[in-house]
């Protein structure tokens, strides 16, 4: 039983570490992370400001970070090296252009 619990815990730890797109809410800000180690340039684009392009920041681990207000719902996507990119995300809707957008929903 103990082995099973440890095994499940280890699998969950590995999977969360392998997640390519996730976010963390810290106070009033949502930090949105995207793992694209080979990307040169990533822009975060959202409905918060009429889809203006915002350059994502990255650390030495090549995890790209964008921030947004945590209390507002918005739609978003990325532009990775000049190409529109939609990460895997829980909530989505069609974009009327044959593709989709991610939706950030507070508390979802």
């Amino acid at each position: 039983m103990k082995t099973h619990v440890l095994l499940i815990g280890a699998i969950m730890l590995i999977l969360s570490g392998c997640a390519s797109h996730y976010y963390r809410v810290k106070e009033d800000t949502v930090h949105i992370y995207l793992k694209r180690p080979n990307a040169k340039d990533i822009f975060f684009v959202s409905s918060l400001d009429g889809y203006e392009l915002h350059k994502a920041k990255h650390g030495s681990d090549r995890i790209w970070e964008a921030t947004a207000p945590a209390h507002r719902e918005f739609k978003y996507f990325y532009i990775v090296d000049g190409v529109v990119y939609l990460p895997s995300c829980r909530a989505k809707e069609t974009d009327d252009f044959g593709s989709e957008n991610c939706i950030y929903v507070p508390d979802m």
Binding site: L15, A19, H21, V83, V84, Y85, L86, C89
Partner: peptide, 9 residues
């Protein structure tokens, strides 16, 4: 959220 994968297109 946070699961593997994504679609480049």
């Amino acid at each position: 959220s946070g699961h593997e994968g994504g679609s480049g297109h």
